[in-house]
Design a protein around this nucleic acid. Structure first.
Lengths: 197, 197
DNA sequence: CCTACCGATCGGTAGG
DNA sequence: CCTACCGATCGGTAGG
């Protein structure tokens, strides 16, 4: 008889295995073994292996979208929004690194409409970032901004984070987002009259 | 009888398929079918499927290392090196997008010592980037640089490039590297006395 | 959730 | 490079 909460447990276990070995590198038996049940029994809870991947990535997409949208729609300067958005992004990764890894790394293993669904949500997410930049440019906060490349720069940072960020390090999400935001806002270069004495 | 150049052809085909469907998502029969031979015949040219993955990723690693090393060791300002390095990085991706995709996305599917070999080369590559930044900081070219995060910023851009860059677009490797480098050097923010009139 | 199983496919091999 | 094949494993199902 199915255990209550078993489905969530299966999702968590699948999430962990997919993040470690990839979707195609993980078998139904890897998952059922880790659950302590037989492979056939898994199908009392799911219909297909791909269901697991879709549910993990879709929840990931939702988490990112729902954390960014209120920030974009809030009243604040573009700089402030950029910092908050980066912090929120890191926090979503922090809260579930494994799901974030699957979301970023394995979503293309989805087929047909499900892949399209995730693609759409990714596009929406990128568009929200774009709004922060275009509003900042329109408000004169950003110096003749190349919006396309600024967006690519930020998304690169965000999309690569899961590869190196590990919770429990010496820097919090707040500190990391501050440093990246500062660097992108100010640039590396020494300004005139600001160099070494 | 084995055809001359067949091995290279197999590598190219495997590279393409791995980049599209992933290493574990690609079967030996996918590869042999695309070659127009039977699956067993593939083993006249290779020993294992993983050999293909290793050879593709190792060549990728070499290409990146060999293009960056002379730039780091040259005589130039850190700014100049940063721009040249970014351009070289994009050019390596440009020359073989599929191999770059496999290198960045599939290398973790390698096992044991082969994975370690690639990991080491990745570390070397990242260290070379680090040298550009630390030399720029030491020379006073960069404003109180947070070296670790500057390196992460640049590597994020570089490591994410294969996801969106497509050869034949309206911008050359030169132009793309210029824009990213400019943005990282100058920052987004409008400087005092530089805003809108 | 188990028992018992299925057809298909997997990476790979022996012998020519 | 083909013929012919192998044992193992794959995702998944029927019936309880």
């Amino acid at each position: 008889m199915p255990k209550v909460g078993r489905r969530e447990e299966i999702l968590n276990i699948a999430c962990k295995l997919f993040s470690q070995k990839g979707y195609h590198g993980t078998t139904i038996r890897d998952i059922s073994d880790a659950c302590g049940i037989l492979s056939g029994s898994l199908y009392a809870h799911i219909n297909t292996k791909e269901d697991l991947l879709f549910e993990i990535t879709d929840r990931g997409a939702q988490a990112f979208l729902e954390s960014l949208r209120p920030i974009v729609e809030s009243e604040a300067t573009a700089e402030e929004k950029l910092k908050r958005a980066l912090k929120a992004h890191i926090q979503v990764i922090e809260q579930n690194l494994e799901a974030a890894t699957v979301f970023f790394h394995e979503w293309k293993a989805l087929t047909n409409g499900r892949r399209d669904t995730i693609q759409e949500k990714r596009d929406q997410y990128e568009a929200l970032w774009g709004r922060i930049l275009s509003e900042g440019a329109a408000a004169g906060e950003f110096a003749d901004l190349d919006e396309k490349f600024a967006r690519l720069l930020i998304l690169s940072v965000g999309n690569w984070l899961y590869q190196w960020y590990r919770p429990g390090g010496d820097l919090s999400a707040e500190e990391i987002s501050e440093r990246f935001a500062d660097m992108m806002l100010k640039g590396f270069r020494v300004k005139k009259g600001e160099g070494k004495p």
